[in-house]
Design a protein around this nucleic acid. Structure first.
Length: 520
RNA sequence: UCCUUGAUAGCUCAGCUGGUUAGAGCGAGCGGCUGUUAACCGCUAGGUCGUUGGUUCGAGUCCAACUCAGGGAGCCA
């Protein structure tokens, strides 16, 4: 017995493989280690969908190949228990991944009883409470792998060009844009804040390195309950000496193109799993339209069309579509409920109808949400006052008209941050730039050219009622070798959300921290 | 902070204008069928209807307050 165990361990070790490597092992005997993602049973046969983090593979256990003990072990497997399966690799086009394992040995590792996440739709709150387990689901697996790829491609984009990565501090003493959205904490008796941006430190480092980027967590105590907000999120903030706002825009565009190219090349399976419409990613590979604030405002107010489409008009159309779809959904629900009530259906059909009704109800709830929101958006777009910053709804109105991200620049200086440079030709405007993602995703990047003049900066700091003393070191950057420079901040989670086409940012980060959510 | 929607079994939801022992499907347990891909058949267990108070002969259903959650505004990436 002891000998057998030793031998088996050695054999297991020798042939241990990851699912993504199976293409090189057709006809060979290998061992896969992972978790049971799904299981279907028949008489004398068990189908196990095994996942090991690199992919999914159907493994078939029969008495013929695995023996009576193997079959019994296979039958005992439960959802999400861990197991080591040894068997022969065969090709099977019907399977996800294209391969199947004909199992010869089943070695249970860790049990799993009453796994809470079922093969059925769940509510958001329930899933969020189970986030530590939800991450194992196929869809979440795919999203997290795409997130990983995006992070990697961002590093590569900047490293390839010679940018230096730097880490900005998390504890900060100064409030960058007022104190209302900062998390306060005690720092040896002093008040410290959790960083909401590494930008000012990035500027200092750019004067040392030329071009840098930060990549770290940022914290904002905004009590926002929307699909775009997190309290803790990751931001990439490049800062480039001797770049003006237009070179800055080139850099942003290049980065986003690099991310899309990389994700498309390396995450095909993942994109397919989440059902992402790739057309919008394709059309985002061209240069992004660059609009001034003035142009963007005209579009939002419906005074200017884009490719024959009107912003407000298209929202009104959308509203009509929502109402008519709502009627269809209601009719379909009523129809299916009547058929179930009719009593002539078999149990399996009732089950199928019930599932259908559940998802229709979900769609109905979403449509009703839209029906409530869209009129508000139309109203706020019509009433948009020149000179204001864009709100979420304004971004929705304008981005619906484009099939790629757009860049809006030259904002009224009064509504933007103190550190932005004025347009030398028209000081009413600040050289800020926002990148708005299409499909209503809104702002994914905010940035601009920085003010280089010490006196203008001081005036702005006073205007924003910020404590001058906290910015002395920052002003030093203008006193000693000030140069034109620019930078931007990319919200990683918003980027992931857009690339994956998610409904909500909470799925774009492993453990979201948001208003009302601190666990798990 | 404001607006809006909601809270009924482990999960997803019914429960119409207040009326005797609160329902379904999934999941779980047991048994049978099946090279299966969230659609097979049968049986069993499982709920003080978010909390508190009120109206009423009678409240899951009506009213008020609170708590929690979804979405939106503001603010932002």
């Amino acid at each position: 017995m002891r000998y057998l165990c030793k031998y088996r361990t050695k054999l297991t070790f020798l042939h241990r493989m990851y699912i993504e490597e199976l293409h090189s092992a057709v006809g060979k005997t290998v061992t896969l280690k992972g978790w049971v993602a799904n299981k279907r049973e028949g008489k004398g046969i068990v189908f196990v969908i095994l996942r090991d983090g690199t992919g999914y593979c159907q493994c078939v256990v029969t008495e013929d190949t695995a023996g009576a003990e193997g079959l019994a072990n296979g039958q005992d497997l439960s959802l999400e228990c861990s197991v080591s399966l040894t068997g022969t690799v065969v090709t099977d086009e019907k399977q996800m991944g294209g391969y199947e394992l004909q199992v010869t040995a089943v070695e249970p590792i860790g049990k799993s009883e009453n796994y809470p996440i079922a093969k059925k739709e769940h509510g958001v709150e329930f899933l969020m409470d189970q986030r530590h387990l939800w991450l194992r689901s196929t869809r979440q697996w795919a999203i997290m792998r795409i997130r990983n790829r995006i992070i990697f491609s961002i590093h590569r984009y900047f490293q390839d060009q010679g940018f230096v990565q730097m880490d900005a501090p998390i504890f900060t003493g100064n409030a960058c844009e007022g104190t209302s959205t900062l998390f306060e904490t005690d720092f040896y008796g002093e008040t410290a804040y959790l960083s909401q941006s590494g930008q000012l430190y990035g500027e200092a480092m750019a004067m040392a390195m030329g071009r840098i980027y930060t990549f770290g967590p940022t914290f904002r105590a905004e009590k926002s309950k929307t699909r775009r907000h997190l309290s803790e999120f990751w931001m990439i903030e490049p800062e480039m000496a001797f770049y003006d706002i237009f070179q800055n825009m080139d850099c942003i565009e290049g980065m986003i193109h690099a991310i899309i190219t990389d994700v498309k090349a390396n995450c095909q399976q993942e994109l397919k799993t989440i059902g992402r419409d790739l057309a919008i990613l394709e059309s985002s590979m061209k240069p992004f339209p660059r609009l001034t604030y003035d142009e963007a405002v005209r579009i939002i107010k419906g005074e200017q069309d884009v490719n024959g489409k009107n912003g407000i008009g298209s929202l009104e159309e959308e509203l009509k579509k929502v109402s008519s779809r709502l009627l269809e959904v209601d009719a379909e629900i009523a129809d299916r409920e009547a058929k179930i009530a009719g009593g002539s259906l078999k149990k399996g059909e009732i089950n199928f109808f019930q599932n259908k009704i559940d998802s229709l109800k979900q769609e109905k709830a979403d449509l009703e949400e839209d029906a409530r929101n869209i009129p508000q958006w139309i109203k706020s777009a019509k009433e948009f006052e020149y000179g204001n910053d864009f709100g979420g709804s304004d971004e929705t109105v304008i981005t619906r008209l484009f099939d790629s991200p757009i860049m809006v620049y030259d904002w009224p200086h009064a509504v933007k941050a103190f550190y932005l440079k004025r347009n030398p030709e028209n000081p009413a405007f600040a050289r800020g730039v926002d990148v708005l993602a299409p499909e209503g995703y809104g702002e994914i990047v905010g940035g601009g050219e920085r003010e280089t003049n010490e006196e203008l900066l001081k005036a702005k700091i006073i205007e924003h009622e910020l404590p001058m003393s906290a910015f002395e070191w920052y002003l030093d950057l203008r006193r000693f070798g000030s140069v034109p420079h620019s930078g931007f901040g990319l919200g990683l989670e918003r980027m992931v959300t857009w690339i994956c086409g998610l409904k909500h940012v909470r799925e774009s980060i492993p453990f979201p921290r948001m208003y009302g959510r601190l666990t798990p």
